[in-house]
Design a protein around this nucleic acid. Structure first.
Lengths: 244, 244
DNA sequence: CGAGCCGTTGAAGTGCATCAAATGAAGTGG
DNA sequence: CCACTTCATTTGATGCACTTCAACGGCTCG
């Protein structure tokens, strides 16, 4: 835990933030802090890594070495048990912090699999820890990132425990739309990066049911789906349908 | 955040630990640390509180003031959304730490309702925070407690997303049995403190289905249920049935 | 002791899963 | 570049697990 704060990085960044880092939750850790709250300018990024479609960023059981900031692309996060049951807990996209599932125990509890070729920033966890010890404000920010993960869990619990299939799908689409919006893309037209199988698993349904529900939503002119191309035509109706 | 470490408590404890505190996860915070790891002897407990059956320990939306160590009794923890959907996330019993759901945001996200008259120790959260800052080992222990909560969520996600009703009930019974065992009670014979309605909600089912499944399990001689009295007659078969 | 909640059981309905098969898209190797 | 394989998606037909509706009996607690 006595790791020095400044690292010999394989790639250090110049004075200005590299493009794409503006929305990064941990930019303050990676780069010289501009807000005066950090105790020292640091550049903790060891390197970036390209993760090809289908490959894992990390796997359940892996020791926690790094956290990952998803710079581009998207992944599916999946939790499994010994019996082989799988549940996809979410589909983070650019800007998301990956690996916090391991923060508490030191071991990853989930698989994170790239849905498309994706780029991640690698953040040595020891650096994050050290920074947390030195910078209480940063620690609180970091806590808030963990909180976001847990809130996602709670929301999914409500979905899986209480909703009917149409409500689940509507809720899912709204969620994806919000995510797109947060990333600066159109919330009305976007392409789904995951398979129907993945969606079905995530929502506790079967593939065929997902297809049929999407079909019905299209029938009702709420959406326009063709393959993975999605157009949301009536956000409000969807939101209504998704139980608030 | 500059709260002093030693508190004028309405009840301070004598040299020996009060009975029941041996298994308390935060005993090191409440009492003089005996392991030499803590920086100072502290007694953070302001007081204990009796929570009557049906009354809340805290409610979603409440600002985080205290954490609560459940000393005796049991509660149901419930998360809700604006649409009024409710999902019971668990049924903690004696020894459990309540309120960590609020640690990340500072606001409680769940209701905790007593299932029977219960006693809780009140731990001002500011004290816990202060202790975390001063005592890195304690902070890690505390982190581990939060981790336990999150693991519960992940486990429940698998249950709700993947299992059939019989598997859910079996899994639930095994879980309750383990909990009883952890509290020093018989894992084979115990009484359920929650209603069938609560169980059904927790498992994403309907009351009638819970009854029928319990009936079937009894038929198969795996359990013996009468009202809330439960006897587990074949743990292994149950465990098998519960997907691992 | 009686009112109301809780638990159980039965009968009927349905939402979703299962099984099966066709089409379309994407990847592979010659 | 095309033939072939493989996977993803969709649609239909059927079945069943679970829900829904309804009624009753037993606790429990004022």
């Amino acid at each position: 835990m006595d790791t020095p704060l400044v690292f010999s990085s394989s790639r250090t960044w110049p004075g200005t933030l590299p493009s794409g880092c503006e929305r990064c939750a941990l930019a303050r850790l990676c780069h010289a802090a501009a807000d005066g709250l950090s105790t020292a300018p640091v550049s903790a990024i060891r390197c970036r890594r390209l993760v090809r479609r289908g490959e894992p960023v990390f796997r359940a059981g892996d020791a926690l070495q790094n956290l990952y900031e998803l710079r581009s692309g998207s992944v599916k996060v999946r939790v499994t048990n010994r019996a082989g049951l799988e549940q996809i807990t979410g589909f983070p996209s650019a800007g998301a912090l990956l690996g916090v599932d391991a923060v508490e125990t030191g071991t990853h509890r989930c698989d994170a699999i790239a849905l498309e070729d994706s780029m991640v920033c690698i953040l040595p966890f020891s650096d994050v820890l050290a920074k947390c010890r030195d910078d209480f404000v940063f620690a609180q920010q970091f806590h808030r990132l963990i909180a976001h993960d847990i809130d996602q869990y709670r929301r999914l619990l409500l979905t899986l425990g209480c909703m009917k299939t149409e409500e689940r799908v509507a809720d899912f689409l709204i969620g994806m739309s919000d995510q797109m919006s947060a990333n600066g893309y159109s919330p009305h037209v976007f392409t789904l990066k995951m398979t129907r199988e993945d969606i079905a698993n995530h929502l506790g349904m079967k593939v065929e049911t997902v297809c049929r529900v999407l079909g019905r939503l299209q029938e009702a002119s709420l959406v326009n789906v063709r393959r993975r191309q999605l157009e949301i035509r009536d956000v409000e109706a969807l939101r209504q349908m998704s139980c608030g």
